[in-house]
Design a protein around this nucleic acid. Sequence first.
DNA 1: ATCGTTTCTGCAATCGATTACATGATAGCT
DNA 2: AGCTATCATGTAATCGATTGCAGAAACGAT
Lengths: 344, 344
Amino acid sequence: MEDRLPKIQDVAREAGVSTATVSRALSHPAMVAEATREAVLKAVRKTGYRVHQAARNLRRGRTGAIVALVPNIGNPFFSQVLAGIESVAARHGYSVLVADTSRPQNRREQISVYQHSDRADGLIVLDGRLALDFGRKGRTDEPRPPIVFACEWNEDITFPSVMIDNRVGARKAIEHLYALGHRNIGHVSGPQGNVHTQARKEGMCDMMRELGVRIRPQWFLNGDFTLQSGLDASAQWLAMKEKPTAVFCSSDEMAFGFISGLKAGGYDVPGDVSVVGFDDIDISRCFIPALTTIRQPRLEIGTIAANMLIELIASPNEPLAEPQCSLPVDLIVRDSTAQIPPAA
Amino acid sequence: MEDRLPKIQDVAREAGVSTATVSRALSHPAMVAEATREAVLKAVRKTGYRVHQAARNLRRGRTGAIVALVPNIGNPFFSQVLAGIESVAARHGYSVLVADTSRPQNRREQISVYQHSDRADGLIVLDGRLALDFGRKGRTDEPRPPIVFACEWNEDITFPSVMIDNRVGARKAIEHLYALGHRNIGHVSGPQGNVHTQARKEGMCDMMRELGVRIRPQWFLNGDFTLQSGLDASAQWLAMKEKPTAVFCSSDEMAFGFISGLKAGGYDVPGDVSVVGFDDIDISRCFIPALTTIRQPRLEIGTIAANMLIELIASPNEPLAEPQCSLPVDLIVRDSTAQIPPAA
DNA sequence: ATCGTTTCTGCAATCGATTACATGATAGCT
DNA sequence: AGCTATCATGTAATCGATTGCAGAAACGAT
């Protein structure tokens, strides 16, 4: 009927009250008399009114949105974390804005999003590289929306964070390979400078030292978590004179690429080489061979981070009960690892 | 220094001009004298001013955001499409809000987001199920933000849309299997009621009829695009007395589950059975065997949809040059299909 | 010098909802 | 009855940026 959206005025007129009362009936029902509230609600239904978010946000000084900074939206690992964030956010009436930090022109924009709280009430940062930027800019006298780091995280930053114990994960992987008899163990790492990369590599080396296994730098290959980099690593492996009998890959996707390359080169997994991944993405259990890997609770990372953030938004001055949350990871043994072949 | 964010007033004072001039210098630089503009920009830099989005949106009557309704954020297929949307949106100064339609409590909310244009300037709908809802509610005299459907799409709805030609994709898959000598062809479909499911099944059957291949309903298994449903289908296949020698799966993930189940049951792909997937997600080329599949240009779907939407937002009354965009799909032949074994 | 343009800038209204404060009504108490 | 406390509601200011309108300044033409 109307050719414009109903506003609070229209509801007020319809219900025979002031706009203030309508606003209160909707936002603070207890402040308004039973009968009035009913009348307002009826008028709302009749007019089809819905609050105009921009106006509400302007007045209330909040945005009703939280921003998630993701290194790569296309990565299934992150999309699961996002799904967790989104479910919690929606339950609390927040929208989730997703920004992909992989496009360089975004970086500056994101920092400023952070500095000014007018675009989001809070941030969840899934990109560890940004930790430093945020850390540096931190003039504490400046108003800033709460931030929670998830997944990736920089050790010298003290923001609230939720992550998994990369070191323990890597140790479990090595322990498993060791128990199978492997003493010649290689590694395909994540991108240089990444916190996961670093922590997993360290956990791996620590464990190897503890077990008295020799660490050979030439068996440490550089990857970047992607399928392709796993494939590239397999080519390097094939070219080695002395080859490790087991390889720990810092992501499942790299493990897939690596195994795929090995098969193409005529080697069998786990017959000739055992491979352990990291993440336990969905497909890992259906890969052939099903991948032995370290499981990360991806959904949970998202939900916990979102809950922390929402708590921070609600009471910014109250510190969190547990600001640094570290989730356990599990070794999932499948078919890509086996006893070391007797011949070797 | 300041304990509150700089506002346009502060810039105006600093530059010695009115707020109107500051606003114009930023939004319509041509309207303002060279020298004044410089002064304003200097003041902006000095104060660290950034426009307050909520205020701007309220005044301008737009939100600067577009909403993407996704059936399942966690699905890597959609996250690639999202990545495409996000890149275009960012280039035009729009934020992307992602909403997951899989949670039922969201459905009503989403419809109302759509009906009221106060939360988003436009919508991209990746969930075909919502097409009907939108279609029904379509009282054309009501103001509504522009909508573009992507991927999934309901034939009797005439919204602008970008999708791929499911029929042709399915035909190519069958044609390929036929050329390899297969005459006994099965299918694992997507969820019932889904447009992709329907179109692919129809394309498949059309092609089989044209080629004179017998269609056996008991070889058509129901899936839902997920890994698990492919695994379930493999159990059904294993239980069949007469088995097809080739199976066309309506998604790559299902194909993975299916092949995985077959291997576990002692059958070889492609030795005993040829399998074709649909989507060409990243991992397909590294699966073992590398998956023969139909490639969908996922990123492109997103970018085109976003471009269409932004054009619609800019000039809502001007119809699009090409409102229904259909992208071509290609058959990618890899190692999961082979000549029919001579024994059979 | 006068008038008409053109260009630039400022004033103040405006977007729509929220909320501090004021007011009026009602109830409760002495 | 008179006074206070409590509750419900209305009035109007407010959030911060944008923009229609109008005034001022500068310029050109006659």
